[in-house]
Design a protein around this nucleic acid. Sequence first.
DNA 1: CCAAAGATGTAGATTCTCTACATCATGATC
DNA 2: GATCATGATGTAGAGAATCTACATCTTTGG
Lengths: 121, 121
Amino acid sequence: MIGRNRYKNRIELLQGTLDMLILKTLQWGPQHGYGIVQALHATSGEVLQVETGSLYPALHRLERQAWVRSEWKQTESNQRAKYYRITAAGKKQLASDLSRWQHMVEVIGAVMHRVPDGEEA
Amino acid sequence: MIGRNRYKNRIELLQGTLDMLILKTLQWGPQHGYGIVQALHATSGEVLQVETGSLYPALHRLERQAWVRSEWKQTESNQRAKYYRITAAGKKQLASDLSRWQHMVEVIGAVMHRVPDGEEA
DNA sequence: CCAAAGATGTAGATTCTCTACATCATGATC
DNA sequence: GATCATGATGTAGAGAATCTACATCTTTGG
C-alpha cells in the first residue's frame, strides 16, 4: 500500500514485503488477521493499509510454509477469530527476509545516490 | 535480481524498482540497453544483474510513457544499438519514484525496527 | 570458417497485490 | 424485532512486474 500507482490512483505495497511485515507483526505476539492489519496501520504511522484480499492469501501462504501456525479463538469482544503465531522456522525466515531487505536498500541506495558526471556529491 | 527466491534458487529484483533504476542510470547520460545492464551491475558492486527479458520490456514501457526517447546509433565497437535518453517527464518521474522509494524504506523501517514487548531497544 | 561477445527482442510462466464481492457474528439503535 | 455499523474471514479474477528460455543478427578474433 505504498509505492507505485498501478491501479488508477491507489498507492500500494512494494511487492514481496508483505510476508516480512506480517511475520514482524507476529513477533510482537500472536494476532489475528484483522489485528495484524490494524497493527501495521498503527506502527507505520497510519500509512500502511493492507487489503483483506492481500492479507488472507498471504497468511495462508505463510501457514503452508509452516512459518506461522493458527488457532481459532474468541476475541475480547466475544467473536471468533483465527489467531496466528510465528514458528521457529518463521523466525528464521523473518531474519533472512530482513537481511535481504536491508541488503537491497543498501544496493539500491548505492545506485540512487550516485550523481551524474560533472555535478557535486 | 535481489530479493525473494521465488523461482527455484534465483535472487530477483524488488518489483517496481527496475524502472527507477533504469531512469537513474540514464541520468548519467544516454545509454543503450546492454550498457544499462552493465552500468547497474558495476554501480551496485556486481550485485544487480538485470535479465534481458526484464530490461527490454521495461525500456519499451518507459518509452510508451514518454519518460525516455530512443535513437539507433553505432556503438564504439561499430555495432548498431538503440540509445535511450531520459526526457524532462522522465526526470520528474524519477524524482517521484525516488521520493516514494525513500518514503517506503522509512515506513517499512519503522515497522521492522520495533522490538517485541519486553526486549531492549 | 567458426566461436565468443555485443546487442535486441518476444512468449509464456509465476508470483504478488489489488478490486470487488460474499459471508457471518455481535452490539447498539430505532 | 429489525436494521445497521463494526469486527472478522474469505474467494475470484484482474493487472502488473520479473524471470526463464528462446531466437536473431552483427562484429571481431583465432
